[in-house]
Amino acid sequence: MTGDVPETVTAALADQQVAGQVCLEAGAGVGNTTAGLLTAGAKRVYAVTNDADHAATVRDRVGDGNADRLAVVTADLRATPLATDSVDLVTAHGLCNVLPPADLNAVAAELARVARPDSHLVVDDYAVPPASAAVTRLFALENAAARVVDGRPALTFYPAGVLAAMFADHGWAIERRKTLLDPVPWTEAHIEAHSDVVREYADELPDVVGEPLATMADNLVSAIGSERAGTMYSLAFRLADR
């Protein structure tokens, strides 16, 4: 039992060879894709994240009964401890939008290094949400707070074509594109989770800045409630040549 696997993950993996494959789940998050890969019969899953809490969550959620198939690795995706040419399938589900643009290239290069020739890559992410969407205001606030605190944005949404071209540059030939969600349901739980991020940044700042930021987040939560906006896409690649 691996817990519920979201439809987005199931749909993204549906046309991929997973059973018997060595997989790298790049940016393991809460373990949705890790669960999907294990359910689909992966031989081994390296679930990599640079966040120790996420690593613990993934172990809690899917570790039971999968000790021989799952390795949760706490590492930076720009330089992982995995061997060159060792992976059959790489997944990056909702990863790119949390990568600072400056890191994207290095991560793509590293994924191409660990992947064996002819291996596959699945990249799932959000299209740029419409400017008119209310969630766009929340994401903008989140990015403003992140820039002030960390000097980098929290979220960057890439058009599918941009990611396709960027990975192509590292030898990944695009094989298909499909729409996973249209519209994307930003539920109250998602909105709440994003505003929590704003509040965490706000806590790091002097009260004069932090308090108004937190208030803006609260106001946005009540104004938005939940919203359906934008799309989520899936790109599948094959590693051609480097």
Binding site: E7, V30, L181, V184, P185, A189, A193, D196
Partner: peptide, 24 residues
């Protein structure tokens, strides 16, 4: 199918046992 999945995901999040998520 993308819309069917959107409806399923929307419903799923209302009573998900998985911790707070920023993404889908």
């Amino acid at each position: 199918e993308a819309r069917q999945r959107a409806l399923i995901e929307e419903a799923r999040h209302d009573d998900s046992p998985v911790p707070e998520q920023l993404h889908h």
